Simulated assay, not measured.
Amino acid sequence: MKTYALKFKQNIPISLDEAWDFFSSPLNLEKITPADMRFVVTSDYTANTKMYAGMIITYKISPLAGIKLNWMTEITHVQDKQYFVDEQRFGPYALWHHQHHFREIAGGVEMTDILNYAIPFGIVGRLTNKVYVGKKVKDIFDYRVKAVEELFGKM
């Protein structure tokens, strides 16, 4: 199985507490995901739900031509105000391992995303990643940079 690794960094002019509160809430994912993905959290969480290791989050997404897919991730690791990791348990990827790191810096927070993923279906999956999925994943993270800047400002 071919795996792909991506790393994204963004500096945000907010406190570590504000960054952690926002990014560790599953309900805020919709705010930083492109509308064309039709991303909806279907888990029954409230704005006050705190993230914990073992937390299961379910979603509906439409990554391609309105095709609706179910997706389930588990928060496998949490170190308060430092990092958390989500891993796919059910969904479109053969592997999805996404680390979210937060570090206080002068004037705000440095946020780093480290993503390792794989597409199923062998050579067909590799071709699909080259033609579509790899670009789509990068576009989603590029959108997140802009959405986060609109929400919190730019450093």
Rank of each mutant, 00 (worst) to 15 (best):
D36S: 14
D36F: 11
M37T: 09
M37C: 12
M37G: 06
R38N: 15
R38A: 15
R38Q: 13
R38Y: 13
V40Q: 12
V41F: 02
V41C: 05
V41N: 03
V41Q: 00
V41Y: 00
V41R: 00
T42P: 01
S43F: 00
S43M: 06
S43V: 01
D44S: 10
Y45W: 06
Y45G: 00
Y45K: 01
Y45F: 11
T46D: 03
T46L: 00
T46F: 06
T46M: 02
A47H: 10
A47F: 09
A47C: 08
N48R: 14
N48Y: 13
N48I: 15
T49F: 02
T49G: 03
T49D: 07
T49E: 08
T49W: 03
K50E: 11
K50F: 08
K50Y: 07
K50V: 08
K50W: 08
M51W: 02
Y52A: 12
Y52W: 08
Y52Q: 12
Y52N: 13
Y52K: 14
A53N: 08
G54M: 03
G54E: 03
M55S: 02
M55T: 05
M55Q: 07
I56N: 09
I56V: 14
I56L: 14
I56C: 11
I57R: 05
I57W: 05
I57A: 01
T58V: 11
T58C: 14
T58Q: 12
K60C: 14
K60V: 15
I61W: 00
I61Y: 05
I61Q: 07
I61M: 10
I61F: 06
I61D: 06
I61N: 01
I61G: 04
S62W: 08
S62P: 07
S62V: 09
L64I: 15
L64K: 13
A65V: 14
A65Y: 15
A65S: 15
A65T: 11
A65G: 12
G66V: 02
G66T: 03
G66N: 02
G66S: 10
I67D: 09
I67Y: 08
I67S: 13
I67N: 10
K68C: 12
K68E: 13
K68R: 11
K68N: 11
K68D: 13
K68L: 11
L69G: 03
L69R: 06
L69E: 00
